[in-house]
């Protein structure tokens, strides 16, 4: 499985930013099993690219092709299938249910297409130091804790690719290290590709390739 980004240009992006980019208006392939880091300064369209790949926005020209299928023509049902089985995500703005408990936030993703057991949720939470927060409402957790919840949630399903938008921005060094390790181990289990977009090079993430947006 490969994700092909074919001459994609966001309709809102300035011309000069497109010309200097290694991704915009180019033909780029992201391969399964590969660890890719995209370094993108603020305003270069990093979050937009993540949202284009995840099918949340369509305000671009060009094509994004999963295997043989152009996701620009996907229906809501096809996206649901893609997000259940093939593609997982860690949002920059986390997108958690603030009124629900930490556990409920993880369980709602796990039950969709269970890849992990319920006990593995607890194990991962313990690794990332939020085991004792599982029964608390998300809105009462710190942003750093919420970021760890979002990371664990993304690992509850099967996937060929995991896309991440500044996934460690609010983590301390220790947690960054543990989280990066956890993600790499889980990706290896699935022989999946990792696409990490951040403002700068992320330590502890052993990228095979780095692209500048």
């Amino acid at each position: 499985m490969t994700i092909n980004i074919v001459n994609v240009i966001p309709v809102f992006l300035e011309k000069e930013k497109i010309e200097t980019s290694a991704i915009w208006n180019k033909r780029v392939a992201f391969n399964k099993g590969e660890k890719l880091q995209i370094i993108a300064p603020s305003g270069s369209g990093k979050t937009s690219l993540i949202h284009f790949i995840y099918g949340m926005r369509k305000d671009y020209q060009g094509e994004i092709v999963f295997g043989e299928k152009n996701i620009g023509t996907f229906s809501a049902e096809q996206f649901a299938q893609l997000r259940q089985n093939t593609l997982s995500i860690i949002f920059q703005d986390l997108k958690l249910f603030p009124e629900q408990t930490v556990f409920k936030n993880l369980e709602i993703k796990r039950t969709l297409h269970p890849f992990q057991s319920e006990s593995q949720i607890v194990e991962m939470a313990a690794k990332l130091g939020i085991e004792n927060k599982l029964n608390r409402l998300v809105k009462t957790c710190s942003y750093g804790e919420q970021q760890r919840i979002a990371i664990i949630r993304a690992l509850q399903q099967p996937f060929d690719f995991l896309v991440m938008d500044e996934p460690f921005s609010h983590l301390d060094e220790n947690n960054r290290k543990i989280a990066a390790e956890l993600i790499e181990v889980e990706a290896a289990k699935r022989k999946a590709g990792l696409i990490l977009a951040d403002l700068k090079r992320v330590e502890y993430f052993n990228a095979d390739r780095i692209l500048h947006l």
Binding site: A80, I108, L112
Partner: peptide
Amino acid sequence: DNLQLLITLGYSPDW
């Protein structure tokens, strides 16, 4: 908001 997020997480609108 919750329904939108469920769909974003991969829940099928039809389901």
